[in-house]
Structure formats: C-alpha cells, structure tokens
Amino acid sequence: MFLQRGSGRGFGCGRDGWAGFGVAGGAGMWALLIRDLRLAVRAGGGFGLGLAFFLLVAVLVPLGVGPEGDVLGRIAPGILWVGALLACLLSLDRIFALDFEDGSLDLLATAPIPLEGVVAVKALAHWLVTGVPLTLAAPVLGVLLNLPAAGYGWLVLSLALGTPALSVIGAFGAALVVGVKRGGLLLSLLVLPLYVPTLIFGAEAVSRGVAGQAAEVPLLLMTGITLGAAALLPFAAAAAIRINLR
C-alpha cells in the first residue's frame, strides 16, 4: 500500500514536516494558536456554550437529587468532574472538522509545520478556550453544590491538571472521525471510554481532599496520564488525520 513516498506519509514519522521544522515551524505553530484562539473568540459559541452547559449541569443535578446539603456535598466532586468532562466534549468536533471542511487541513498537512505539532497546538487552543474557563468556573459551581471548603483547592488543581488530558484525548478522537459526516455522536462514543482514567483519578483527588485524606496520589497519577497523553497522542492523532486526508 505505502510505496515510495507514500511510506513517509502513511504513519508516524511525518518526515516532510520535520525536515522543514525550525524557526519557521515554531512561528507557524504560534500563528496557528493565535488563529485558533481568534476564531474561537470571533465565531463565538465555542467556550461560552461549554460554560453554559457546565452551569446547567450544576443547576439540574440538585433539582434532580434534592436540596439536602450533605448529599450534594458528597457528590459534588463527581458531578463537577463529570460536568466539566461533558462540557469539554461539546466542542471537540470543532477541533478538526471545520478545518477539514474548508480545506485548511489539507494545506496544513502540506505546510512546514509537522502535523503532530498542528494537533498539539489545536489541542492547546481547545484547552485554553474550554478547559481553562471550566477550571475557573468550577469553584463558583462548587458553591451551588455545597462542596465542603477543603475541596476547592483540590478541585481547581485537579481540573487544571486534568482538563489538558481531556483536550488532547478529545483531539485524538476528533482526528479519528474527521472524515465522518455528522460524527458528533460517534466521537462521544469513542472518547468517553478514553476519559475514564482521567475522570476516576480527578474526581478521586477532590473526594479525598474533601475527606481530608491524602489526595496527592490520584492527583499525580492523573497528571501522569495528562503528560503521557500530551506526549504521545499527537502522533496517533496525526496518523489518523493523514489516513483521513488520503
């Protein structure tokens, strides 16, 4: 299948990209980040929608569970983490789908920036417009859910360290379904199982923090997942994009 020049393009190495990578590549990645942030701000919808969704979850859960403060306080870490995770999921399909539709992804794949770098930058942009606002909004919603005082620091810390993993894993999922029309639901089905370890460790860290136990271990394990995902998944995602483009 992958003969001659094709072999370089099929998987992994992306030799074409790295060859031209240098000062120009760094500037190009910076330009891509600025462009994606600018698009998110101007096109609207992106992070505002995620935040609104997060707020809705924090409002609806007490309506469903009942107003007892101690019950809400007990489940608050899990609800906030699940809410943040779902809010993050909402905007995932925009990471690559728009660039795929208007042809930008073709052009980026032939640009001097390595495609792995494109994935990493786009995941970073997604985190900046969803993960960061969610992290900052979480303590406010924690008040609504009667989160005990000991939990706020751990909540912000765990979301700050865990939401990058959500964005990177999400970017991988988005890269898989970029060629699929109306791939939104499929994307959720692919990405949610991959979110399991991050969710477990993240929510566990907050729960332990609330209970006054040592929360460092789950927090560090989750950070390990974040770092590992950020280091390795861009390669898998870039491979998926190359497959989808051909």
Binding site: P193, V196, P197, I200, F201, E204, P218, L221, A236
Partner: peptide
C-alpha cells in the same frame, strides 16, 4: 490507543 487506555482504566478502577 484504546488498549493503553483500557489498561489504564483497569488500574484506575482498582484504585477507585
């Protein structure tokens, strides 16, 4: 990728 995350989930669940 799923295999790696399935393994991670397994340990996460044991931890949990």
């Amino acid at each position: 990728v799923g295999s790696v995350f399935a393994l991670l989930s397994r340990y996460a669940v044991l931890f949990w």
